[in-house]
Amino acid sequence: MSDKLLELKDICKSYRDGSGKRVILDKVSLTVGRGEFAAIVGPSGSGKSTFLSVAGLLLTPDSGNVLIGGKDVTDASKSERTMIRRRQLGFIFQSHNLVPYLTTADQLAIVQEKSMREKVKIRELLSELEIDDCRDKFPSMMSGGEKQRTAIARAFINDPDVILADEPTASLDAERGRLAVEMIRNEVRKRNKAAVMVTHDTRVLDLVDVVYRIDGGRLIPEAKSGEI
């Protein structure tokens, strides 16, 4: 498999705005390699979420290409995209978005691929993220930090190549937010994955390898590891 785990090439995306057209992404390109953690910052409405949605195969770009693990998946069918999201992408959302009626163990089991049951043990993963005591708890019985860690565990359960995080610190206090980003960084380092995080939170940017700013539909490199 290619070392470039996530590649977006010349991505254009626009929306209808009244009678006109509003360009959100204008020939945006990004490559995230194995073991690399990138952050994308930018003001509200700058297109961060659109960018993440294109990278996460939730949106189809107007033009450009999306490659995951070196394979062009731009024109993948709906069901292929679903399978790629399940097997190769790990999503962490702004709010935990856990299923209210499932315990932590079930939140993970419901999306875990059968082939992954031997490779990623739920108990071990929960222990690694220090939420093993939440195994049988429902979201309503957990703190905000525990919920977010459960959501992170859910993103890791199928051992995905690429982790995509949409404002993972937004619903957490500074300390817990930092802890959540550290967990993503540790996963990237330990298991040689690629991660892209969209965030407003500049306090956690020291934990990533490279920072991009998105503005006016363009993605501009802002800082690299060591400069942050």
Binding site: G56, L58, S79, T82, M83, I84, R85, R86, R87, L89, F91, F93, N97, V99, P100, I110, V111, R154, A155, N158
Partner: peptide, 14 residues
């Protein structure tokens, strides 16, 4: 609706 949206986003099939 949002719960199902999330489930779809994380790769659960229809």
């Amino acid at each position: 609706q949002k719960q199902f949206g999330v489930m779809k986003a994380i790769g659960m099939k229809n």
